[in-house]
Design a protein around this nucleic acid. Structure first.
Length: 586
DNA sequence: GCCGTTTTCGGCCCGACTGTTTTCAGTCG
């Protein structure tokens, strides 16, 4: 049973308990457990079988731990079975309709016999919903709109799409309201989550009403969900929800903190504030005794006032970061400015857009000290992969371009297919001529976990394979990751001296955050790469760095923070001798 | 249901907006 499936069970329990009217703290405990399990890098199933103590996991106590064991051992949970018996089947889907909370859901079921979305629509149409006490015509209309919205709306949006929509939106807002002095993207986008539920904006302006009205009246807005003096919520025609809050500049710190979240991080910070006799809200810190409000111009001063280190947005997940910040244990996370080179880039020799010289010039213009040209191997026929003859020409061109451009090292590389049977697309005699070999899975992605694990580890054992590219092969929101024993692969990476890539393409962000953290813990080396197919994509270094930050990486964990000289020394080592430390301060 | 430099019992974040109400419950984030 996967962590996702176990998390789903507890999510359903919390929903049913809400309808039952259970204590809110119990409900939250199940929700928290669900989130926690979803983000665990190791399989809970295996932990149970190995007899590990699940109550070591924060938010998992005796009761939930026992329920997990029952789930893993029997495949079912009697507690959930009994709970489900108290409600009609499918009623949890009803509660998914925006605006329909647990109370209203139970009312339409008990008072109108509604148990499905279709039946809900019927009681809206025939007026019986509006006739219920404490509901009315407006509530009914809102529910009608919500049903329509819920039917058309997809789930969370991949970050790449959310970013482009947000860029257009902020441009429109600035145009429509020149009085805006700052427009800051917060929420899951600022945390750099791989999928985004809605876009959260903070607007710093003297005239809040004007800014909020501008948002509500944008031509791109399909529906206004709420519109007051402090915030406005809209749904764009693209289906994306946007929430905007306004603040004066002198209170920006607390508003940034509040609107960046995540929820659990905020709860933990407010808990910390309480322990100091203070109460934290989006305006500042309120003294509980006197009611005086202390305001903050920036987040740094707010965290400092709470007696803790600043927590970078990318790791505000409500996990261990708050206790780490209180203890002074937040490391200096890697920054894009630490990256000295790029080790995964394509040219028009395979499926890239730009000539090699253009790519190298662009990398130099970005301030990079080195770049590896890694066009596809022969097996990628569809991507114009390089035959051995062409690869030799490619290598010759690398030397020419390096000399012609000057001031930047250019390495001969390849992105080589790991074939379905674990064999490689080029022979060792060819590979040993190359400086840098990225091996990637591009085919037979549906293999079962055992076969796939062996396939990848076989590639790692090759002495000339430098790195594994985009290990999971996922495309966020489009293609599922491969099934494999990631833990075993990370251990093999550390054992063999094979580097694991953090692919900075926004469509991939592969490895994912929890895998980065786990690979790092297990001692695997990591590299942040662009996988650029055109010069503009060299900016993927920014995305890759932010993804690495989500995995709590410091510069010392990332191979391409080495400068050109150090990296050259690293390359000169035998693979079995390679580690980042071995070259970093040579 | 979880958790503990204040606690093994008694706490558990905080506020905006809406609709149907004359003071607030429900929902959301």
């Amino acid at each position: 049973m996967t962590n996702g499936e176990i998390a789903e069970v507890f999510e359903r329990i919390s929903g049913l308990l809400e309808m039952k009217g259970e204590k809110s703290f119990t409900i939250r405990a199940y929700q928290r457990a669900s989130r926690t399990i979803e983000r665990l890098p190791t399989e809970v199933d295996a932990m149970v079988r190995n007899d590990e103590d699940l109550t070591e996991i924060p938010g998992i106590g005796k009761a939930i731990s026992e329920k997990i064991s029952e789930l893993v051992n029997t495949g079912a949970l009697q507690y959930l079975v009994r709970l489900k018996d108290e409600f009609p089947p499918g009623i949890l889907d009803l509660m998914q309709i925006p605006g329909l909370g647990p109370k209203t859901t139970v009312r339409v079921w008990k008072e109108l016999g509604v148990t499905t979305v279709d039946q809900l629509e019927a009681v809206v149409d025939d007026g019986s919903l509006a006739a219920l006490p404490r509901l009315g015509k407006k509530s009914a209309e809102n529910i009608r709109k919500s049903i329509k919205f819920a039917r058309s709306k997809s789930d969370r949006v991949p970050i790449a799409r959310a970013m482009s929509v947000t860029r257009q939106l902020t441009n429109s807002l600035r145009e429509g309201c020149p009085g805006i002095s700052q427009l800051i993207v917060c929420g899951s986008l600022r945390r750099f989550e791989e999928t985004i539920g809605d876009v959260d904006l903070i607007c710093v302006t003297e005239d809040g009403d004007k800014a909020l009205n501008t948002l509500a009246e944008l031509p791109d807005v399909a529906d206004v969900l709420g519109h007051g003096g402090a915030k406005t919520s809209v749904v764009l025609k693209s289906g994306l929800q946007v929430d905007m809050r306004v603040t004066p500049a002198d209170q920006l710190g607390a508003m940034l903190q509040y609107f960046t979240g995540n929820l659990q991080h905020n709860v933990m910070l407010r808990d910390r504030a309480n322990s100091l006799g203070l109460s934290l809200n989006e305006y500042g810190l309120k003294d509980v005794e006197t009611g005086d409000l202390e305001t903050f111009v920036d987040e740094e001063s707010l965290y400092d006032r709470l007696g803790m280190q600043f927590v970078p947005p990318e790791i505000r997940m409500g996990e261990s970061e708050v206790s780490a910040a209180l203890a002074g244990n937040i490391p200096k996370l890697v920054d894009v400015s630490d990256l000295k080179g790029d080790l995964h880039a394509h040219t028009d020799w395979s499926d890239g857009r730009d000539p090699m010289e253009t790519m190298v010039e662009a990398a130099k213009a970005r301030g990079l000290e080195y770049i590896a040209m890694t066009d596809h191997s022969v097996g990628r026929g569809i991507a114009n992969g390089l035959s051995i003859e062409r690869l030799k020409g490619h290598m010759a061109l690398v030397r020419e371009v390096e000399a012609a451009v000057g001031g930047i090292r250019v390495f001969c590389g390849t992105e080589m297919d790991i074939r379905a049977d674990g064999s490689l697309d080029y022979a060792d005699e060819i590979l040993k001529e190359l400086d840098w070999v990225v091996a990637s899975v591009h085919s037979a992605m549906g293999q079962d976990a055992a076969v796939m694990t062996e396939r990848v580890i076989a590639a790692m054992k090759n002495p000339y394979v430098s790195a594994i590219g985009h290990l999971s092969t996922r495309l966020i929101g489009e293609r599922k990751p491969i099934e494999a024993d990631y833990e075993a692969i990370f251990r093999a990476a550390a054992d063999t001296g094979t580097v694991l890539e953090i692919n900075g393409s926004l469509e991939r962000l592969d490895l994912k955050d929890i895998h980065i953290a786990r690979a790092r813990e297990l001692g695997a080396m990591l590299v942040i790469s662009t996988d650029a197919h055109m010069t503009e994509s060299l900016r993927n270094l920014d995305h890759g760095a932010r993804q690495a930050r989500r995995g709590w990486c410091e510069a010392k964990h990332i191979l391409n923070t080495l400068d050109a000289k150090q990296f050259g020394a690293w390359l000169a080592m035998d693979k079995s001798e390679r580690s980042i430390k071995s070259a970093a301060h040579a």
